[in-house]
Design a protein around this nucleic acid. Structure first.
Length: 153
DNA sequence: GCCAACGTTGGC
DNA sequence: GCCAACGTTGGC
C-alpha cells in the first residue's frame, strides 16, 4: 500500500515536539485521542512508515513544527485504563478497548514554525482539513498538501 | 477570556 | 430517533 500522510495535533505544553525529541530513540506514544473520527483514522488507516506532520495547537504560536513517521500501528491506549490519568475512560475495558495509540519517531524538526496563518494564506491549501474543520486531532493530508507545505520552508 | 463549531448526553 | 442542553476544542 502506498505511503500515506497525516497531521497530528498536540498541545505542546502537554506533549509536543520537544517531548518527542527528548524521548529514547525519539520515539513517543501518541495517546489521549478521545474523538471517534480521529480514533478511526488511527485504528483503521495509519500504517507503518506513514509520515506525520506534528502540529502544535492551543498555544501562542500554532502551526506545524516538524515531521515524524509511524513506527508502531494502533494498539490499546493504556491511559484509558488508568484512573489517575486525565484520559481515563471508565467505560473502556481491556477486553473491549475503546481508544488506541500509535508510536511515532521524530524525523525532522523544522527550522521554523509553519504557522496556521501561513497555511491559510495559501490558496492551494484551502481544502486542507486543518483549514476547513478546526476540530479534528488526527487527520489525513494529501501528497500534494504534504509537498506544498514542505516547500514553504 | 470570548465565542463559533462541533461532539456528547439524556429525556422523551 | 429527535433534539435541547451542555461540554470541549481551538483560534483569536
Amino acid at each position: 500500500m502506498a505511503k500515506k500522510y497525516w497531521l497530528f495535533k498536540a498541545e505542546p505544553h502537554i506533549y509536543g515536539i520537544d517531548h518527542l525529541a527528548a524521548a529514547p530513540d525519539k520515539i513517543g506514544r501518541w495517546d489521549g485521542i478521545r474523538n471517534y473520527q480521529a480514533r478511526n483514522f488511527l485504528r483503521d488507516q495509519v500504517a507503518l512508515n506513514d509520515e506525520v506532520f506534528i502540529y502544535h495547537s492551543s498555544c501562542k504560536n500554532v502551526g506545524i513544527v516538524g515531521t515524524a513517521k509511524v513506527v508502531k500501528t494502533a494498539y490499546p491506549d493504556p491511559t484509558q485504563f488508568n484512573p489517575e490519568s486525565d484520559y481515563y475512560d471508565p467505560k473502556s475495558t481491556p477486553e473491549n478497548p475503546r481508544w488506541v495509540s500509535v508510536d511515532i519517531k521524530l524525523t525532522k524538526v523544522f527550522p521554523r514554525l509553519i504557522a496556521l496563518a501561513e497555511i491559510k494564506a495559501q490558496p492551494r491549501l484551502e481544502n486542507m482539513i486543518l483549514v476547513k474543520q478546526s476540530r479534528l486531532s488526527t487527520q489525513p493530508v494529501t501528497v500534494d498538501e504534504w509537498k506544498l507545505i514542505n516547500d514553504l520552508l
